[in-house]
Design a protein around this nucleic acid. Structure first.
Lengths: 117, 117
DNA sequence: TTCGATATATAGAGAGACGATATACAGAGT
DNA sequence: ACTCTGTATATCGTCTCTCTATATATCGAA
């Protein structure tokens, strides 16, 4: 009985996407604010370069996990993103999945040879 | 006071490297055996395609974390890799680092807005 | 008026996993 | 004898994703 295996590349991508989604959990924000908040809240551990952030935002919007709407605030245009219901479920489900995977990973790294299933 | 930030891409790479190193913790193995063991021990969650495995092995050898030596066993040539002292330290240190990072990540994903430092 | 912060966006470079392909030997089945 | 599967190592091209650089534009402060 083989379970679905782990996608290493997708994992890195997922981490970034989840950081964005979680930043939007409590309130809608525009991209720049998301980057600022993630950096502040993680004490600089996690951060987004804008060349990384905006493609992620567009990807998440295309996937229907967030919804963006343009706002004009003092002549400065902002695209404010809100978490959709689907995005909220995704965040919750994927967070659990990440937790599960890293638990198994760390258990394997520390006790090789013992099946982690 | 800014700490060094997290390299998302490097994280995925590190996971694969650590899986290889941990497979070698108890005894030297050749590449094919490492792939088999990692897959078995993780119940199929983590696995290596050979197009992924061999470059990693060469990379780790270049970095001095493992040392390979050719062995001839019944006409079948195998390259047996052993963990170096440096590799052992790396495995131990990086495992702690991964643990630290995923703890902070999960804490952030579950409770956004609270500094995790 | 120049600099830095705010704000969004894309194109090009680089890194690394993955699938395909190649080589080669052993053992089992037909 | 032949073929297929498993063992065993290796590389190349493609794909995907991050990252750097660049571009555009507004605002406030020095």
């Amino acid at each position: 009985m083989r379970e679905t295996d782990f996608d290493v590349q997708g994992f890195a991508r997922d981490i970034n996407e989840l950081l964005v989604l979680s930043a939007l959990r409590d309130e809608p924000k525009h991209g720049y604010q998301i980057a600022l908040d993630v950096e502040t809240d993680s004490n600089g551990l996690f951060r987004f370069r804008h060349g990384t952030l905006y493609p992620i935002l567009h990807r998440l919007e295309d996937a229907g996990l967030i919804r963006g709407s343009w706002a004009d605030e003092g002549g400065r245009r902002k695209k404010v993103y809100a978490l959709t219901e689907r995005g909220r479920r995704h965040l919750s489900g994927e967070t659990s999945r990440v937790h599960e995977i890293v638990s198994r990973l760390l258990s394997l790294l520390r006790h090789p040879g013992e099946a982690t299933a």
